[in-house]
Nucleic acid binder design. Structure first.
Lengths: 143, 143
DNA sequence: ATGTATGCAAAACATTTGCACCTGG
DNA sequence: CCAGGTGCAAATGTTTTGCATACAT
């Protein structure tokens, strides 16, 4: 019942919002672009415009329901914000994205910012590489 | 004599390329957008098109002369690639960008990628915050 | 000379916005 | 019913590309 989350975020519970939140929850392992969410909606038979997807995603971000990331490749990707922070490792070959958290790194970041006289409000750590060593099919989302 | 660098990179030594490389070298402390490089060229009295700036910057990147970063804010920023790696800390208030390297973080990254079965080819670490604690004038490059 | 680089303008994208209409509470 | 949300299309901003001309070698 994600209507709760919407209400709590101060957003009216509309069909597009529920559907989009739904898609994000059913794809927690993916980091989707607005376009992908849009296509997913069309597949589900929903008649929702791309503009609305962007609008909703942006609202969700402002409401803290979603996080936006600027990986390489033009389009921003979105993922549900579970509240907990984590960094990303992206496979440049198949597009797979995995998450991780490392206390040591988090601590060092704070220390570094501190020594430089900055107060950190946010940070972005993305590792790019290839995961081919275990099981990287061919290409995941290239089309 | 940066013509050397161009030759070495296998690029023909043309005026636009020399001028752009020149600008980047005279602004090592800055991370400029294509637009900023373009304006800088106009200021120098050079009649070089924006398209050329993008083309040259992209070639430089491919040649390893320059690095492109996608900080928040739409436009990509470029900086000379001295060969050595470093991460960035960006002041969201004044736009200042500083660089740093931390062996501990570098090591952890490698270890993490390793444990996840990835082979790292590159990575991006950006800390966002405010530097107001020492001397953050008002706004640096907002215009 | 001659193949490549450049300039300009138009195209291609990603994202945002204006406006009339529809919908949730 | 009424404010706010949505769809569509047009506008924006960034980066890329096509093509005729100019330049480096």
């Amino acid at each position: 019942m994600e209507s709760k989350d919407l209400r709590r975020a101060g957003l009216k519970v509309t069909l597009p919002r529920v559907k989009i939140l739904d898609i994000l929850e059913n794809n927690v392992d993916l980091h989707m672009t607005a376009e992908q969410v849009y296509r997913s909606l069309l597949d589900s038979g929903e008649d929702i415009g791309l503009a609305t997807v962007y609008r909703v995603l942006t609202q969700f971000e402002a409401a803290g329901l979603v996080k936006r990331h600027n990986f390489e490749g033009g389009s921003a990707v979105f993922e549900l914000d579970d509240g907990g922070h984590h960094d990303h490792i992206v496979c440049l070959e198949c597009g797979r994205v995995e998450e991780f958290v490392d206390e040591v790194i988090e601590d060092r970041q704070k220390a570094i910012a501190d020594s430089l006289g900055y107060k950190i409000s946010d940070h972005s750590l993305i590792l790019y590489g290839s995961c081919s060593r275990h099981e990287c099919p061919h290409k995941a989302g290239d089309d």
